[in-house]
């Protein structure tokens, strides 16, 4: 069965580029173009991985989603691949913290634009690690 991925990103053109790579690689991909819709999708459906943009709307709204996930017992273990256009901005937003503050238990960060092979590698690795963890805890 194909793995399911949700993308939350407010830039439709960027999403098109990411989605078609993932489609080609055989994933089943849903998209939410704003944080609110994203939240709804996360609650109503089951995904194997979330691809999350950080800077959306009027600021770092992606961070809000990530923080909510962290508190959600059901979604906390879902792997999150953070895609950001601004590594520098992250340092801005969290002065004094390492470039990549942990948002959820399991996450990783890549920079836009993402090379296809690297994207697929990361996505596969995160999903696999999550499955191993799940198998171990059951």
């Amino acid at each position: 069965m194909a793995k399911r991925i949700l993308i939350i990103d407010d830039d439709p053109d960027f999403v098109a580029g990411i989605k078609s790579i993932l489609d080609t690689a055989g994933f089943e991909v849903d998209v939410a173009y704003d944080p609110k819709t994203g939240q709804k999708e996360l609650q109503s459906q089951t995904y194997d991985l979330l691809l999350l943009d950080i800077m959306m709307g009027r600021g770092a709204e992606g961070v809000m989603i990530a923080r909510k996930l962290r508190k959600d017992a059901k979604l906390r273990e879902m792997p999150v691949l953070i895609i950001t256009g601004m590594r520098e901005q992250i340092a801005f937003l969290f002065p004094g913290e390492p470039i990549h503050p942990r948002f959820v238990e399991v996450d990783e960060l890549v920079e836009k634009p993402v090379e296809p092979t690297m994207l697929i590698e990361k996505v596969n690795a995160l999903i696999q690690a999550a499955e191993v963890r799940k198998a171990l805890t059951q």
């Binding site: 830039d11 053109d13 960027f14 098109a16 580029g17 990411i18 078609s20 790579i21 080609t24 800077m55 256009g85 601004m86 520098e88 901005q89 801005f92 836009k112 634009p113 993402v114 090379e115 296809p116």
Partner: peptide
């Protein structure tokens, strides 16, 4: 300025590059 540079300039370029990546891949 940082905001403009990052959002108004970088975001479109990222989108373009991502689609080029996709084209090449497919």
């Amino acid at each position: 300025f940082a905001h403009i540079v990052s959002h108004e300039l970088k975001a479109p370029l990222n989108a373009v590059q991502q689609n080029i990546f996709a084209l090449e891949f497919e």
